[in-house]
Amino acid sequence: MFKSGSRRHLLVALSLVGTVMTAIVVLVGAWTRLTDAGLGCPDWPGCYGRLVVPDAGVAQAHTPDSPLEPFKAWVEMFHRYIASLLGVIVLALVMLGRSRRNDAGYPWGVSLALLMAIVVQGAFGAFTVTLKLWPQVVTLHLLGGLAVMGLFLWLHLRLRRYARSISKEGEGIVSAPRRLSRWWAVAIALLVAQLALGGWTSSNYAGMACQGFPTCNGEWWPSMDWSEGFHLTQTVGPNYLYGQLHADARSAIHMGHRLGALALGITLLMLIWRHWGVRQLRPILLLLFAVYGGQVLIGALNVIWWLPLSLALVHTAGALLMVAMMVLAVWQARGIGQPGRSSAMGECVNA
Rank of each mutant, 00 (worst) to 15 (best):
R341C: 02
C41P: 05
A351V: 13
G49F: 07
Q136S: 11
M149R: 10
R258V: 04
G29F: 04
A185P: 01
Q234V: 13
A351G: 11
L297T: 13
A263Q: 03
Q211T: 10
A126Y: 01
R161T: 10
P135C: 09
W305C: 02
I24L: 13
W276R: 15
V12F: 09
L159T: 12
F124R: 00
A290W: 03
G277E: 14
V25I: 15
C348E: 13
Y240V: 07
A126D: 04
G40I: 04
Q244R: 11
A104P: 11
A189T: 10
R161P: 02
S66I: 14
P42K: 09
T235R: 14
V12Q: 12
A252F: 00
P70D: 06
A147Y: 06
D248P: 03
L153T: 12
V349M: 12
G97E: 12
L264I: 04
S223W: 09
T233F: 12
V236H: 08
R7W: 03
L14K: 12
R33C: 00
T128A: 13
V148H: 10
K168P: 00
T22D: 08
L311D: 03
Q244Y: 06
F230N: 01
Y81P: 04
W226G: 01
L10N: 04
L131Q: 14
A324G: 10
S175R: 09
H156P: 04
H257K: 02
L114T: 15
L51H: 05
M116S: 15
L27Y: 09
L27N: 12
R178L: 14
A317V: 04
I266V: 15
S175C: 03
W273D: 08
L313V: 15
A163I: 07
R179M: 09
R258F: 07
Q332H: 11
L232T: 04
L157K: 02
Q295N: 09
V327K: 02
V52Q: 08
I336Q: 05
V26H: 01
Q60S: 13
V291N: 00
I253H: 01
A30W: 00
A189D: 13
V349Y: 02
T139K: 01
M21S: 12
S223C: 04
P45Y: 07
M255K: 01
I166D: 10
L96I: 14
L307A: 12
S203D: 05
R80T: 02
F230P: 00
A61P: 07
C348Q: 11
L288G: 03
N302S: 04
L269K: 06
Q332F: 01
G260W: 02
C210E: 00
G122K: 06
N239I: 11
V12M: 09
G346C: 01
L131H: 11
M325E: 02
V327Q: 01
L140K: 04
H275I: 02
L157A: 07
L151K: 09
K168S: 15
L114I: 13
M270P: 03
L320D: 14
G237Y: 10
A324H: 03
V349G: 02
S181N: 14
L232S: 00
N350S: 15
L297A: 15
P222T: 05
K3T: 15
Y81D: 07
A185G: 12
R279G: 08
P214S: 05
A92S: 14
S310C: 08
V278F: 05
L313D: 08
L271V: 09
H254P: 01
W154Q: 09
F71H: 11
M270L: 15
A189K: 08
G256W: 03
A324W: 05
S111L: 13
H79P: 06
F289T: 08
T35D: 08
